[in-house]
Design a protein around this nucleic acid. Sequence first.
DNA 1: CATGAATGAGTGTTCATTCAT
DNA 2: TATGAATGAACACTCATTCAT
Lengths: 199, 199, 199, 199
Amino acid sequence: MPKIVNHEERRQELVEAACRCIDRLGIDNVTVREIAKESGYSSGTLAHYFADKDAILRGALERADDNIRDRIAALPDDLDPLTLLGRVLREALPFDEERRFELTLDVNFWARALNQPALRELQHDDHDAWRKRVLGIVEAAHEAGQMPEALSAADQADILVAFVDGIGLQALVYPELMTRERVEQLLDAQIAHLAGGTP
Amino acid sequence: MPKIVNHEERRQELVEAACRCIDRLGIDNVTVREIAKESGYSSGTLAHYFADKDAILRGALERADDNIRDRIAALPDDLDPLTLLGRVLREALPFDEERRFELTLDVNFWARALNQPALRELQHDDHDAWRKRVLGIVEAAHEAGQMPEALSAADQADILVAFVDGIGLQALVYPELMTRERVEQLLDAQIAHLAGGTP
Amino acid sequence: MPKIVNHEERRQELVEAACRCIDRLGIDNVTVREIAKESGYSSGTLAHYFADKDAILRGALERADDNIRDRIAALPDDLDPLTLLGRVLREALPFDEERRFELTLDVNFWARALNQPALRELQHDDHDAWRKRVLGIVEAAHEAGQMPEALSAADQADILVAFVDGIGLQALVYPELMTRERVEQLLDAQIAHLAGGTP
Amino acid sequence: MPKIVNHEERRQELVEAACRCIDRLGIDNVTVREIAKESGYSSGTLAHYFADKDAILRGALERADDNIRDRIAALPDDLDPLTLLGRVLREALPFDEERRFELTLDVNFWARALNQPALRELQHDDHDAWRKRVLGIVEAAHEAGQMPEALSAADQADILVAFVDGIGLQALVYPELMTRERVEQLLDAQIAHLAGGTP
DNA sequence: CATGAATGAGTGTTCATTCAT
DNA sequence: TATGAATGAACACTCATTCAT
């Protein structure tokens, strides 16, 4: 019997190496050889686990999205909606190395998605799940009387999601301009303002 | 006698060809040859006007930024601040072919900027100018009494800019999900809400 | 306890898989992996039975040659020489799937033999045996008075063998041009003419 | 103005290098790098003149066929048909380095043609032209009363072409067995016999 | 100035072979 | 014996760049 290998585990190992390469080099400069070197395996080994380079990169995108999803799912469920909202939205902002890493991956894939339908679908599904999660919390806040009805929950959720997307990008690209403190201040202001009150 | 050519004019011609290539192929798939073909000049000619491929791409980013700046500068000055605010922010949203084109270019450069300081500086300067323009209008609205003081002008401006960045990206990548109508509805809601709740 | 396997039997099994691959893909496109898949064994197994890929291919050539030899040996011995001659020569022509398969294998090895002495020797021995078989029949025809002495038996045999080689190749490559009917007509004409003009 | 290059001439130069590589290495072992080295140009240069490797190889096949055609066309026209027939058929036999070279190329392409329709068409057209040339001479011999009508001209032509194909292959692969002298002897015997007489 | 021929390093990918299990 | 994971060299092809004309 040959060495027993857990295929899915090995795939994850290689995907993580790919993620580190994307973070370090930018997605345009990632090469199969570099991923191989980063992973510690030979370049030919990648062929056992992925049909081609694009498959590895797709795996990296899925991985990044899964990470965010997992972290959000791990949040405590017993918080009041408004507090939870702030916590959930913070998971998409680059406030620590892990989140900076994930957001960097996402940004690297945005331009690609414009030309690669397969990537666009992946991102679309993930974005949809993310938006629905936020919407659910906003609706819970409405039910709990924590947010006014001046705007519909859908409007509030979409505004928040768009705001977080935009502010996260700025925090990533201009960290000296858009510091963590400033981002949190703006996020809280935005939430509080949508919630109708003075923060 | 060498032929007399207007260097700057020719550079712009080539840069525009580069922009069209980026829009069509994605920045990763742009080749010098393709830009040459698109421009109608030979590939060697590009070498006369740009040190290397990256210089062409930098030129394309500058060009895209200049376009937005020019369009904003061209807006009428005598509008009341709140109306002007809506007009200005719409200039950054992909509501027609021209703006879709420019935003596509921007998105293509975001990931690159994470690894190329030269590109980051270009984007930084432009983003700063853009943010200041919005801030100026918000301050004018404050002075005109069109916006409440619950939030500072700086906060409101940054929130709006982040929101527009995020919603523009979504409109670009998921146009079937985030239609122009929906985007305008959300933009107006965000502005109105920041302006005190009366749409 | 190691499993008892019949080495020679297993080798034949693998060689037959190799033959099918050559027929299907052309000898240039045959890979060890493909032979393994075709045989139902793992790629590593081939290494137990053959030193390297070339050894498998040599085995395939031997196999193809053996097939022809076996079929010729199986022909009835009590036919009159001229009838037997036609039957034997037909065994080298692609008139059914089995013969098409064998001739295809041969053609695939011709070019290789020009550069690989080992293959050339295999083909040489087989061709010699084949030529001698034909010569023996022609000589028998001479003795039986079925062929005139205008040409020596050796000349007639060599002419027939060359003709069959050439017409077989054409029938294989241009089957729509050189149909079975046409080939048989030409073969019979050639034999009859060499036999003195009375078909 | 850049260096002026005659494209067709350069293509021929590269094709000839490819032919030499095929002759030397066998078509399976020919690499683009090797052709480049043989031609004296860099590997990238080949891309200027051929879409891909297959295009180069197709060019090599065309070249070999053209060579035979040209040599046949160059034969004197005022010979009597039967003499001409012998001269023409000898052009397809490997009696000198040039003809050995051409026939080697052809043999290298036979197996490929079984799997590559494009190559098959090339060979088909050439074979057809060659067969028609031989047929024309046989018909002239009939008109000149040099050949009997026991067999039709078409039959005689096809028999001769097949014989020459087969004997040429043998002369190429087994030169020590099928020497030039033996081949010429057999060719003359086959012609004379078809012509109805004693040589 | 403009051309496009030429370069050669670098890419993704394939594949015969090796070898621990 | 049999497996299939792993290797790494070799492949065809791409492309930014150089430069003689």
